[in-house]
Design a protein around this nucleic acid. Structure first.
Length: 679
RNA sequence: GCCGGUGUAGCUCAGUCGGUUAGAGCAGGGGAAUCAUAAUCCCAAGGUCGUUGGUUCAAUUCCGACCGCCGGUACCA
């Protein structure tokens, strides 16, 4: 096991609030650091904020504040999120700090001196309305900007280029020699195939805005974002004692920024003379998805279940950091996408932490008080029965496997095995039936059983400590033990049985994972925007749920989900429902409506002899017209026509769910002929 | 289009380097027990392992095709 462990999160772009995706990456990094610490490593966790770029410059201008002031404000929110989540970074770097600015310029010069930076002309297709470059593939047929549907200009700009093409072979060799460099494997495949397909040199400076690090010796240019941002991992430690941690053992990233980390970053480092000290692993995790369940195989659309807020601060305030941390790492396989829901947090905490682990402790403690004077009973080695040794063997094996899962970044698996430890304890408890031993007066045997169970709890608590540090210490406290205290060089992973010494005075107390009663749970869920929502019209602009994928810790957060509007819809009778004529339809044509950027004009086939209907739907923020043609939709067919002006009359309405910029269309699991009644 | 992945019980997934009864958790059902946060433990699901060809004594597990879904296909931070 490495004696030093350096883990990084991406630095977060300060153009929006922290959301659950940021929390996810940060928590994972913290848990990994704590795990390695428990195993005796000296650890270092780096996070921070990415603060340069045109977007920040503009956003600040919009608010009438200097970019630095704007960045200060948002950066502070990211910094505050850490303690809120129980995360303890060893350093928090900001790209606007002198140490970073000077560092980036130093590394820039290194690359320049290596001959890898040169001045050239960047040619691109520029949309004036977007104020940004487009790639050819993005463009609509006819070379139109996909956003504004207007022609783009070919623009040339003098910029510095990084000679990325030169590193193609070196990168391929890196991936071949060190398959662990990009993980999981599926990401490595993507990266390899991308690099294989050929690398072009990378434009790494800009001259059309100023909010960035000046290019050394060329004041007209600022260093472009990725060259600036990626080097944070190095500038944070370079020239300090912490440089002994270099290179990073693992750099966590979300899948949308793998390429920057797995291609550009090592190329930059190679160029800068750091090719022999590259990061060991770029680990990519997936997205947390929120929002409505996939409709069941039964045709028809019913209520959409909202999964609640995704604001980590609100969640922690309501449920505690440990419940959120546990859920994030337990629920989804690290590296894959997964569903995120508030109910999931509550349910995992209740059943696994409370009912399985917490309850195991609380069913054993009373015996200690009643029969052993509040002290852990002694267990003479010769008193062990087959059941006892079987328990020990089982738990010892689970501890080992769980450690292996941690080492492979499979935290979800590691936690599952941890719960299995407690399950084994519960089973042993039932099999040995200490309450019967007590009644029979077999105090000797009772002592053995209770001591074994308490030891199981102790082991589970230590195993959980990287993930739920606070609650883990609370468990240990009731066992009469001190909090987990990592020490360099000391492997404290509970591979050895017997850490709970005989005669230790236990400290029984309130449940460590108190159970919510139904009322409290309902109140908390409601406070976090969890509820069932009825059918929703696409003409309504009310945000209903948040079915948009939440980019987990991209350096650019998505706009925070608008809080769902609280509303209760009165119960109706079947007859009321039957008044609504829902029909399956198919979109034949779709087009934008000038000056109405939320509306699309659709013609929808409902199988009617009178031909397709015109429907005006407020879904343009979520769908391009092209994406809708051919789509199966659910239409409210007997809705009174509605006039949107200028002859735009809508004869019906589509069903969809979500905020106006992230709608999910109500549709069918398999094709249904147009006109089919939906009920 | 091209490249890659994926499709297993109601839900979320594991698994089979090809071989007697395909697994876990959750939800739902039955039972045991009563120490404990009405917690725990045990039992049951008769699931065409996406469809379809092929290889084989034998395929859900290998190969091909097809269908569905997801991702990648670079300068957006």
């Amino acid at each position: 096991m490495n004696q030093r462990f350096y883990v990084t999160t991406p630095i977060y772009y300060v153009n929006g609030s922290p959301h659950i995706g940021h929390a996810y990456t940060t928590v994972a990094a913290d848990a990994l650091a704590r795990y390695r610490g428990l195993r005796g490593a000296t650890t270092r966790l780096l996070t921070g904020t990415d603060e340069h770029g045109q977007k920040i410059e503009r956003e600040a201008a919009k608010r009438g504040v200097p970019p630095q002031a704007f960045a200060d404000e948002v950066s502070a929110r990211f910094r505050e999120l850490c303690p809120k989540l129980g995360v303890r970074p060893d350093d928090f770097i900001r790209t606007t700090e002198p140490r970073h600015i000077e560092g980036v310029q130093k590394w820039w010069r290194r690359c320049r001196d290596a001959g890898d930076l040169y001045k050239g002309t960047y040619k691109g297709l520029y949309c004036v309305a977007c104020e940004g470059y487009k790639t050819e593939k993005e463009l609509l047929p006819g070379g139109l900007c996909p956003v504004h549907e207007r022609p783009v200009d070919t623009l040339e700009e003098e910029t510095w280029f990084f000679r990325l093409s030169k590193y193609q072979d070196a990168l391929l060799k890196l991936y071949a020699d060190h398959p662990e460099f990009v993980q999981p494997e599926t990401r490595r495949n993507e990266i390899v195939s991308f690099v294989r397909s050929g690398l072009e040199d990378l434009s790494v400076s800009r001259s059309n805005f100023t909010w960035g690090i000046p290019v050394p010796d060329d004041p007209g240019h600022v260093i472009y974002v990725w060259f600036d941002a990626l080097f944070n991992y190095l500038t944070a430690v370079d020239g300090t004692a912490a440089m002994s941690f270099w290179p990073p053992d693992v750099q966590l990233v979300a899948k949308d920024i793998v390429r920057f980390h797995a291609v550009y970053w090592p190329a930059f480092l190679m160029s800068a003379g750091m090719g022999d000290r590259l990061p060991r692993t770029i680990w990519t995790h997936g997205y947390l998805l929120t929002g409505g369940r996939k409709t069941s195989k039964t045709p028809g659309v019913t209520a959409v279940k909202t999964r609640g807020t995704t604001d980590p601060v609100r969640i922690v305030d309501a449920l505690g950091a440990d419940a959120l941390r546990y859920y994030l790492l337990r629920e989804v396989a690290f590296g894959q996408d997964g569903e995120f829901s508030i109910q999931g947090i509550v349910s995992r905490a209740r059943s696994e932490l409370g009912e399985t682990i917490g309850n195991l402790l609380h069913r054993a403690l009373p015996f200690v008080g009643k029969y052993f004077d509040g002290r852990v009973p002694a267990v003479p080695a010769e008193a062990l029965t087959e059941a006892d040794t079987a328990l020990r063997d089982r738990v010892t094996a689970l501890v080992r496997e769980s450690g292996e899962a941690w080492d492979a970044f499979s935290m979800h698996r590691a936690l599952e095995l941890t719960i299995d430890v407690a399950r084994a304890g519960n089973r042993y408890f039932d099999d040995t039936a200490p309450w019967k031993l007590a009644k029979a007066g077999d105090v000797t045997r009772l002592g053995v059983v209770i001591a074994q169970v308490l030891e199981v709890v102790r082991i589970a608590a230590v195993m959980l400590s990287p993930v739920i540090p606070e609650r883990s210490d609370a468990l240990l406290h009731q066992l009469g033990l001190d909090p987990v205290a990592p020490a360099a060089g000391a492997d404290q992973w509970p591979t050895a049985w017997g850490g709970l010494a005989a005669h230790t005075a236990v400290r029984p107390g309130a449940p460590v994972f108190p159970k919510l009663d139904a009322e409290a749970e309902a109140r908390i869920l409601a406070s976090l925007d969890v509820r069932d929502e009825p059918l929703v019209s696409t003409e309504t602009d009310k945000p209903m749920s948040d079915p948009t994928p939440t980019p987990a810790a991209a350096t650019t957060p998505a706009a925070p989900a608008a809080p769902a509007v609280a509303e209760t819809v009165a119960e109706i009778q079947y007859d009321d429902f039957a008044k609504v004529d829902l029909r399956a339809g198919r979109v034949l044509t779709a087009e934008r409506i000038p000056r109405k950027d939320k509306l699309l004009k659709l013609s929808v086939d409902l199988g009617e002899a009178s031909g397709p209907r015109q429907i005006i739907a407020g879904i343009a923020l979520s769908f391009t017209p092209e994406a809708l043609v051919g789509a199966q939709v659910v239409v409210v067919a007997n809705l009174a026509p509605r006039d949107f002006g200028k002859g735009l009359v809508s004869h019906g309405m589509l069903l969809a769910a979500g905020p106006s910029d992230g709608l999910a269309l109500g549709t069918f699991a398999r094709d249904v002929p147009p006109g089919t009644r939906v009920k």
